[in-house]
Amino acid sequence: MLISCPHCGPRDLAEFSYQGDATRIRPDPASTDAKAWYGYVYARPNPAGRHREFWQHAGGCRAHLLVVRDTLTHEIYEVTFARPLPGTGETA
């Protein structure tokens, strides 16, 4: 599998560290809503098909990337930075 890091270009799977589902939303830190925290920490949509997920380019620039990948075929549709670029409020 090759992942195209927006910084470093297409790099081999071996350079990346999987960081899991990217659709979960972390509750407000002060929230004590047990269901919401359960949903964030434990539950996963785990789709068969397109999956939004985080990968860290651990053996490269160390940026977290937001990757859209098919869990049935491993085809990668889209790779962007997980963190918005400074000043743009948008992902690359």
Binding site: Q19, H64, A82, R83
Partner: peptide
């Protein structure tokens, strides 16, 4: 390190 980077990149950009 990875734990901290995750929070900075993903949770508290």
């Amino acid at each position: 390190m990875q734990h901290l980077e995750y929070f900075l990149d993903v949770i508290w950009p």
